[in-house]
């Protein structure tokens, strides 16, 4: 590839899912950083990835805390963050958007290929927030 590979930070505790997404994203041409807990993910964000895919139910530090901390930190606050989770409660989604995430993807509703497609779309429009109303809530 001529262009510099985009770097995706994937923070996901489930090994199978982490490796599934990592595999697909890499095949789609992304450079993937992975973290298996919130703390590790937060630390890796200092490497300044182009986008962060953040699970919510995470050990050590949960996704919402990671999101808040990253947005508080001036160094990382500019990185687009997309929540990637299976939690669909309206309250959680609303809170995530309030804390500054760019998008919210329900893992079960996308195949890995669809996910990498969505990541590309987010990278193409890194400031356009997803419409909350379009998300199928639980």
């Amino acid at each position: 590839m001529k262009r510099k590979k985009s770097v995706v930070l994937l923070i996901e505790d489930e090994l199978f899912i982490r490796e599934l997404y990592q595999n697909r994203l890499q095949k789609s041409g992304f450079s993937v950083l992975v973290a298996s807990d919130g703390m590790e993910g937060f630390n890796l964000a200092s490497k300044n990835p182009d986008i962060i895919l953040l699970d919510i139910m995470l050990p050590k530090m949960n996704g919402m805390e990671v999101l808040a901390k990253l947005k508080e930190n001036s160094q990382t606050s500019g990185i687009p963050i997309v929540m990637l989770t299976n939690l669909g409660q309206e309250s959680i989604i609303k809170e995530a958007f309030k804390k500054g995430c760019l998008g919210y993807i329900m893992k079960m509703r996308v195949t890995p290929s669809e996910l990498s497609q969505r990541v590309e779309e987010f990278l193409a429009n890194p400031t356009q927030k997803m419409d909350v109303a379009k998300i199928d809530l639980d």
Partner: peptide, 14 residues
Amino acid sequence: LRTPLTSIRGYLSV
């Protein structure tokens, strides 16, 4: 149930 299902379906589709 969603977590393992996501995994199964994801691997199968890939």
